[in-house]
Design a binder for these strands. Structure first.
Lengths: 224, 224
DNA sequence: TTTTGTGAAGCGATTCACAGCA
DNA sequence: TGCTGTGAATCGCTTCACAAAA
């Protein structure tokens, strides 16, 4: 049975996983608004996807729709939440207490999704000890091997690009199992560490590609 | 010829477009370091992709490699830059002067990629007039139809989710052609407006999915 | 010989279309 | 009748493998 589950978990397409948070968010938005059930086409409209895809996505998680009726909102929220591992609050640390690091530290959107910042680190001695929200900025050296509490599984890199790789190595040494990287750098880490990259400039550059196409009259409709 | 170009531009796969900024960044990193030419496999290693994919990606843009040798670094930078539309500096405005909006406003990574912030707006009267870097926070109502200079093509939404759609509508009215949305909301806009979404909480939730899998021993290798 | 550029094969995701159920 | 769950078809991206070129 465990093997069966294993196969099932591994088999959920990454594209589906990436959409689950969106589904969950839309469901939460309508929760408690006199709708106890929602059809795939209604939820598809809310999320901007098509109904068939939504049904297929949900079918990877199990069968919890009712034919002829739709999906029970509360149950669906529970199921998606279970798969996303929101049963417990996850702790993360941020390295880099620049503008971005501090903004992430104060970001309200994390906590109600089950994530909590547990530390903010920087290399600049001038910043150490300063407070950002409830947190005091600590020195990066406090992040040595085994110095991190065992329940801190996620590290966020908000450093300049030139120290991003070093920072990633330190985080892995310190025991994090996954990294969210905001630095514009292609990090190399052990393959058992899950890395996700968010590059703000890249996003604008992709937009720039489409604007360039528009300007030259090469394309009329848009994006992706 | 114009039609031919049109077809070509439209035909570049979105996945390829999304990788171009990364290629460009890696090329810039090695530019001027006594390497005037680079092979697809070398660049592939730097970017973390495979050589065949890199060649195919570049082949969508044209043929500028030399068989037996590789790609001229300077020329490749020029070509990718051309496709990404970095020939001129692009201006953008930010709506929402919270932590995230202010951090984006001060983000150093934009300007050397050819993007420049031209305005920062908020709805909170208490914030109006305050300075963030070189910029003074303006009231959101200054963003009415035609009130935006014609060369401002990009709007960044860093507002709370509940006003994100209204903000998007205002930006489009004001004349922006594309939107980078940081609010956790599925925006609906005219299809000629290019939208890209960056959801910070979603990224953590995707990581959460993998952590949940690890915890239950369901998966061993990682990510995507 | 080395490395590009590219048809062809392979693979995964999306969409279709309908059987299965309430 | 209405909507889910899902095989089958389709579409698009990635990878392979090799001919063409320097």
């Amino acid at each position: 049975m465990k093997l069966e589950q294993k196969v099932k978990h591994a088999k959920i397409p990454p594209t589906t996983v990436a959409r689950l948070p969106l589904y969950l968010r839309c469901l939460r938005n309508i929760q408690g608004k006199n709708v106890d059930s929602i059809s795939s086409s209604e939820l598809a409209k809310l999320t901007g996807h098509n109904a068939a895809q939504l049904r297929k996505d949900l079918s990877y998680l199990g069968e919890f729709g009712t034919r002829g009726v739709g999906y029970d909102v509360d149950e669906l929220i529970g199921q998606i939440g279970k798969w996303l591992g929101t049963t417990s609050v996850r702790q993360f640390v941020i390295v880099g207490a620049g503008h971005l690091g501090q903004a992430l530290c104060s970001y309200k959107g994390f906590i109600n999704k089950g994530f909590q910042v547990a530390g903010l680190y920087d290399a600049d001695p001038a910043k150490i000890g300063k407070r950002v929200g409830d947190l005091e900025i600590r020195h990066i050296d406090d992040l040595g091997p085994q110095k991190l509490a065992g329940d801190i599984e996620i590290g966020i890199i908000a450093t300049p690009a030139d120290v991003a790789q070093t920072t990633a190595d330190m985080l892995v040494q310190a025991g994090v199992k996954s990294i969210l990287n905001f630095a514009p750098a292609a990090l190399k880490v052990d393959k058992c560490v899950c890395i996700r990259n968010v590059d703000l400039a890249t996003e604008l550059q992709i937009i720039g590609f489409h604007l360039a196409g528009l300007e030259h009259g090469l394309i009329s409709d848009c994006c992706n």
